[in-house]
């Protein structure tokens, strides 16, 4: 799903399941590699973890609030709090690793 400064609180911070947020922008090469992988993870983890994308260019407030200064960055939130952060594109396996860890927390 698409996240933005407006729906972030409702969709992420108040979500009753963990949420993976992909901070990205269209000028970023590695973000474009990560995009399809994130889409696939959204399907694979449906019902267990919510997956959303946030364009840092259009949503500076949230990006600044979480001090995102490098993209792609993925943050997993649980109960309104950051529990995992991955800077850079680690490949699908790298994302699966933090998702599995997040599910165990």
């Amino acid at each position: 799903m698409q996240l933005n400064d407006q729906n972030f609180e409702k969709e992420v911070l108040k979500s009753n399941i963990p949420v993976l947020v992909d901070f990205w922008a269209n000028w970023c090469g590695p973000c474009k590699m990560a995009g399809p992988v994130i889409d696939q993870l959204e399907k694979d983890y449906a019902g267990k973890i919510k997956v959303g994308k946030l364009d840092v260019d259009e949503n500076p407030q949230i990006s600044q609030k979480y001090a995102v200064m490098s993209i792609p960055t993925v943050i997993i939130f649980k109960d309104g709090k950051e529990i995992k952060r991955q800077v850079g594109f680690p490949g699908k396996e790298g994302y699966i690793k933090i998702l599995e860890e997040a599910l165990k927390e």
């Binding site: 922008a25 000028w27 970023c28 090469g29 590695p30 973000c31 840092v56 260019d57 990006s63 001090a67 995102v68 200064m69 490098s70 993209i71 792609p72 960055t73 952060r85 800077v87 850079g88």
Partner: peptide, 16 residues
């Protein structure tokens, strides 16, 4: 890393 240290100017330049 990701808090001011970067290896990708095209990705992260706009944060600065």
């Amino acid at each position: 890393l990701g808090k001011g240290v970067s290896y990708c100017t095209t990705c992260d330049g706009n944060f600065f």
